[in-house]
Write a protein that binds this DNA or RNA. Structure first.
Length: 596
RNA sequence: GGCCCCGUAGUUCAAUGGAUAGAAUAGCGGUUUCCUAAACCGUAGAUCCAAGUUCGAUUCUUGGCGGGGCUACCA
């Protein structure tokens, strides 16, 4: 139980004793005392006036007196307007610090302790183009959420559903056939996913050209789009693929393989990995039998042309297609099939889809369809719907090549980190291998933090020119704080000072209490982040903690402190702050260096 | 047209209905014989508009205005 809860209970008990009424717990609001007032925690008394039937000051005074006399930990209080500010004893804070220090991975639940299994699907790339900044947000969110759930004691299965089939892949294939002249990753030196992506762009260019030509001959744009020879060829190629035409099929395999090899490099650069990879070419037929069941139950309707629909007008939505007239399935059909399959196979408690907010409608429909089919777990499907990443000039368009490429971005971040480290002379005493590891850590830290600190559901703008900072509220700032602490601890050991595992009670400064309090709140941050699926909470936590520590570091001696008891407390605080930073950053998928 | 999301300093982000709306960055001015200055301190600067609910609204409701998304026999 965290400190707020303990105080909440103590306060409600005090209120019952004084006024004879046990207050509803949501009326007993405990919050951190604002910086400008004295105290550690504050009880907001306004909601309690109904019970006390007295004015705010008197009510606060009475509760304050009762709490001080009944609790050893609460030593004093002051009242400002309707706010009762409580101060806790230094013994209490030292004990809190000792508890933190004696807990392994403080803030994380024991692995698999929740007994729940949760699947997180993320990444889900198309195999016709390389990953871009939008995918990076998806990957980072998915990976971070997986770790957060894991830290809450869940068994997590990270899965990737690769969209490896469809008309868009045929476009790349066709353009390669027509214009590629046998280009391969090997003979061109291009990364496979980029090579395939280039042909996707090339297709679009040619397609647009043909549309213009047809329009020049008097055809409407609408018609030109459907009659351009190259799009007809692509459609034909898709049919051949579905018929497993050997030539098309083997080209498809070859080009997809190029892409996978490329993706692997990107994933590995980002530190992303999966427990299982699904391929749409293997799952796209799933779901048909379930649709037929629904038809038999009368949940779905078949139109005269043979297509199958669900009518969701009752739910404020419209009709949605589930099977085409020719009997082939659509995306929805597949998602129905895979959901059922996964719940059956893994006995999932929750299934989280990390997918952009442009697909909210799709997931609403998916849940409703499954609900109507009477599956009991539909409440356990979550769409982690994140906002788009936009460029200053608007949406990224991969067809037009207007994207921030993932590989380029990572490379640029790392090389910027390299330049800055060099300039600051940070790498002077390190060998090449260490230096390169640290520089990579910093570049990636900057990128990942930049993206994850933003509330997932919000859209974000990325300006490639202004790029990503390394100072202020950034990943490197937090990494630096960690490195700084490690440096202090190293130096302490060098001069023969032992880092304590626990301390004796000692008077603490406000800054020291603040640090202990922040670290003590870590478990509840981890828990809340899991509840609302938001890595941003951990980013904020790590930042606030780092900021506080840097002020502390600036204003206080640690090793040089002569009072041994005080020095021990400061060393232990430093040690625990470093741990909390490391553990919170790990949940973001960001590593922290021991020097930088 | 219908449905959904978002409007906070110049910019990028915070704020379970609670105190004087926090940070960072950019600007201006400072700190290094002192454990890492990728740091620290000071200064200036914002809740789109209008009603309503409330002891109290950036937060909730309604209506405007502005931006984005969805509304395919695409995924």
């Amino acid at each position: 139980m965290d400190i707020e809860n303990t105080l909440q209970l103590a306060a409600s008990k005090a209120i019952e004793e004084i006024y004879g009424v046990l207050p509803n717990l949501n009326l007993v609001q405990i919050q951190k005392t604002k910086r400008e007032f004295e105290g550690d925690f504050t009880l907001v008394v306004f909601p309690l006036l109904k019970i006390s039937k007295k004015n705010p000051e008197v009510t606060a005074q009475e509760i304050g007196e009762r709490l001080v006399s009944s609790s050893k930990a609460i030593t004093s209080f002051n009242v400002v307007k309707g706010f009762l500010n409580l101060s806790l004893s230094y013994t209490f804070w030292c004990n809190t610090l000792n508890t933190i220090a004696s807990t392994i991975d403080f803030g994380y639940a024991k692995s698999d302790s929740s007994g729940k299994t949760k699947m997180v699907e993320f990444s889900s790339p198309n195999t016709n183009k390389p990953l871009h900044l939008g995918h990076i947000r998806n990957n980072l969110l998915g990976f971070s959420i997986s770790r957060i759930l894991q830290a809450n004691g869940d068994k997590v299965i990270k899965v990737n559903l690769v969209n490896d089939r469809g008309i868009h892949i045929c476009k790349s294939m066709l353009a390669w056939q027509k214009f590629g002249k046998g280009e391969t990753p090997e003979n061109s030196g291009k990364k496979g996913d980029h090579l395939v992506g280039d042909y996707y762009v090339l297709f679009d260019k040619e397609y647009k050209k043909q549309i213009e030509e047809l329009q020049a001959k008097g055809m409407s744009e609408e018609e030109a789009k459907t009659k351009a020879p190259i799009i007809l060829e692509a459609q034909e190629m898709l049919l051949k693929w579905e018929a497993k035409d050997s030539e098309v099929y083997s080209l498809w395999q070859t080009m997809n393989q190029w892409v996978y090899t490329g993706f692997d490099v990107t994933y590995s650069a980002l530190g992303i990995e999966f427990d299982k990879v699904y391929y749409e070419s293997e799952t796209y037929l799933l779901g048909k039998s379930i649709v037929n069941e629904g038809l038999a139950k009368g949940v779905f309707v078949k139109k005269p042309d043979g297509s199958v629909w669900i009518d969701l007008n009752d739910h404020g939505l419209d009709e949605k297609l589930l099977l085409r007239a020719d009997g082939t399935s659509v995306y929805m059909t597949q998602d129905i099939g895979t959901a059922v399959q996964r719940f059956n196979e893994y006995h999932l408690d929750d299934h989280i889809y990390v997918v952009g907010n442009e697909q909210e409608y799709h997931f609403n429909v998916l849940k409703l369809v499954l609900l109507k089919l009477d599956y009991k777990w539909t409440d356990h499907l979550y769409h982690l719907s994140y906002g788009m990443v936009q460029l200053p000039e608007g949406k990224m368009k991969s067809r037009e090549g207007k994207v921030v490429d993932a590989d380029d971005l990572v490379e640029e971040m790392v090389s910027t980190a390299q330049e800055m480290s060099q300039e600051l002379g940070k790498l002077n005493e390190l060998n090449a291998k260490e230096a390169s590891e640290i520089v990579t850590m910093i570049g990636l830290g900057a990128l990942k933090y930049f993206i994850l600190k933003v509330d997932p559901k919000k859209n974000m703008t990325f300006n490639p020119k202004e790029s990503i900072d390394f100072n202020g509220n950034t990943g490197p700032f937090i990494q630096y704080t960690h490195a700084r602490i490690q440096s202090v601890l190293r130096k302490a050991i060098e001069v023969g000072i032992v880092i304590p595992h626990s301390i004796n009670p000692v008077e603490l400064s406000g800054k020291e209490r603040e640090l202990i309090q922040l670290v003590s709140a870590f478990p509840s941050v981890v828990k809340q982040a899991a509840e609302i699926l938001s890595p941003a909470l951990l980013a904020n936590f790590a930042y606030e903690l780092s900021k506080e520590y840097n002020q502390f570091y600036h204003d206080f001696f640690i090793i040089k402190e002569e009072d041994e008891k005080v020095r021990q407390a400061r060393l232990l605080i430093s040690h625990e702050v470093a741990n909390a930073i490391r553990l919170s950053m790990w949940l973001l998928g960001i590593d922290v260096p021991n020097r930088m």
